[in-house]
Write a protein that binds this DNA or RNA. Structure first.
Lengths: 349, 349
DNA sequence: CACGTCATTCAAAGCGCTTTGGACGCAACG
DNA sequence: CGTTGCGTCCAAAGCGCTTTGAATGACGTG
């Protein structure tokens, strides 16, 4: 059943039927109703391919899932982000096209998307400092919104980001208020923009109390469970271990927990942990109080907001870039407590 | 730059240029070379939309990401699976279209995909017992491959699955060999096909030693960290706790670990844990020996195989359905050890 | 009553590609 | 020398939709 057949049945021209279905005003209400009724009866659904060619719009948003070369690592927050964005796309009649690409081929992948006209816009994930993808997308003329921001990237662009600096300052202050003075930051990869902002926030809070940021207590790495385990374990085994850890995601925090237990220490008592919680659906930080003290911001919500913003800027191409800055709230959980009174002694393995 | 312009530049008809570019034989080698060279020089790339309309093929594979209603839960293995499948699609010139859909709308989503012609085939995720989506897809005439299998679903269909029954029997035997007699199964949702097979495998191994499957030691649920924590904690608090846990995924196993520690018990010593490991990229079960004793099977590899199989069956529509059964290997880790000699006493909270 | 206006409808021309059904020239063949 | 066959190439007809420009008729107006 295609448009031609349907209009033949109705005794109307394809023009009128098309307009009736797409809500154009130059068709009488009576005819519109008749058309809609018949379309439903015939179970007519316009062919997407033809529609796309005729309108020149792909009605599709592109997401590029970069896979890091060394570890074949997939960003664990990706699925939840997509779940949020996907909801919005579905509601607006858009499809979501996902391209899995090796890190180093990412620029070419964007070029390809723009050229082939398969997408009307893209979401840029995991921005780095001065990210080259931003000028690239601008040059390609492809509407985009960045999940995160890119320090030093010139020019304005759409973004949705958490106030990471403020969140981490808040988290660090919480630990400082509890009396901790030896605080470690278990951060993400150093070239990620969010990691820098988190470091700044951490450092802001320490500076307020005139404390220095110690290199040995600042780790950067891909946020896996193993990374959390190894760095925390390493720090705890040193002769002057931290009493608190600020961990950039719940996943390395799980490794941190394992390390702390393996060292025979108790979380929230002998060692405090505060995390950034992306509210991943399979890692709800639940309980009363929640398992982890956390600065929380739902990545799924960020997905929804990114999608909204992108669809808007596709609808109005000349709109000025917009920004959404999300606040992360601190919620107290079981994993943080007062700094131990006595300077904790090193325990053996 | 489109085909018409390109052929004008070359002084050839669009027909010939199209054939030259698509490798048809009825064009001389000299012309083909000339066309290819000019296409590259002009940076010509055919418009995907037009190509799709003209060929009637979408050159796209659909994946439906169902979001469970109650917990807004996204399957954590999804991202890694897509990373594997996506690699294959990219290599074959296919796009990947992802639809985020509420559980209850899934059937309609498949209908929609088939009707609108946006995809050439789909991958079916998370099959349940006698899954209605299988006859539906068959009726829609949409090529598909199932990641997993569906017990009782009539008729043959493409699938890629792990031998869950064998894997769980093997895992349970390992625990039995270590002397455990009180073994709990922390399984996935009861209506998932894989969960049933795992239960069968578990039960096979117990039956070999004439042990019954105890209901109180068999849990079914959505595989979150919290689920692992709560069920394991509940079982450990009972008056006759299990000495070993067989956990269906690394994620509830993290909760299990937390519960065991909260009870003041040591993993691999006082309590053994064996997991099914999907080899998620952000949860590498690493170390020497690895953290968890596990039956392992890479979900990413499954993604690649599903994609391969699907592309094959799209290429040859009349091919008989094919099946790939993956073996999960047991790898010994730190989390399992001999059953405690003395019947362990209950410890207080 | 002639005319402009408006609402409603339609024919036809795209969108950029593929593919069918020749056309043309040349070599080989009887 | 006419025919056949082959290698190359092309014109034109789609694919199923949207959209431009025009036609038609009804209506109100001077």
């Amino acid at each position: 059943m295609n448009l031609k057949e349907l209009s033949a049945i109705l005794g109307l021209s394809p023009t009128t039927v098309s307009r009736a279905l797409n809500g154009y005003p130059e068709v009488s209400e009576a005819t519109r109703r008749r058309v809609l009724a018949e379309a439903k009866r015939q179970n007519y659904h316009p062919d997407t391919r033809a529609k796309r060619l005729a309108t020149g719009r792909a009605m599709t948003i592109g997401h590029i899932l970069p896979v890091s070369k060394e570890h074949e690592m997939v960003n664990p927050i990706f699925a939840d982000f997509l779940a949020g964005a996907g909801e919005v796309y579905a509601g607006a009649g858009y499809d979501l096209s996902l391209a899995v690409v090796r890190d180093e081929d990412e620029a070419e992948a964007y070029r390809d998307l723009a050229r082939r006209g398969t997408v009307d816009g893209v979401v840029l994930h995991g921005p780095k400092l001065d990210d080259p993808r931003i000028p690239l997308l601008r040059e390609l003329g492809l509407p985009f919104v960045v999940h995160g921001r890119s320090t030093d990237a010139e020019g304005d662009y759409n973004w949705v980001d958490v106030d990471n600096r403020r969140a981490f300052a808040r988290a660090a202050r919480h630990l400082l208020d509890l009396g901790h003075r030896r605080i470690a930051l278990i951060n993400g990869l150093a070239d990620m923009d969010f990691a820098l902002r988190r470091l700044f926030g951490f450092s802001d809070a320490l500076a307020e109390r005139s404390l220095p940021v110690e290199d040995r207590w600042t780790a950067h790495g891909e946020m896996t469970e193993t990374y959390g385990y190894e760095t925390v374990r390493g720090m705890l085994e040193a002769h002057d271990p931290p009493t608190a850890f600020l961990v950039a995601s719940i996943i390395p925090a799980l490794g941190a927990r394992r390390a702390i237990h393996d060292m025979g220490l108790r979380i929230g008592d002998e060692v405090s942990v505060v995390i950034h919680d992306d509210a991943l659906s399979y890692f709800r930080n639940e309980g009363t109080p929640p398992v982890y003290t956390a600065v929380r911001s739902s990545v799924r919500k960020a997905g929804r907001l990114c999608a909204d913003l992108l669809l808007q800027s596709i609808a109005e191409p000349n709109r000025a870039p917009d920004h959404i800055l999300l606040e992360a709230e601190l919620s107290l959980g079981q994993s943080s407590g007062p700094a131990p009174r006595l300077f904790r002694q090193r325990k053996s393995r």
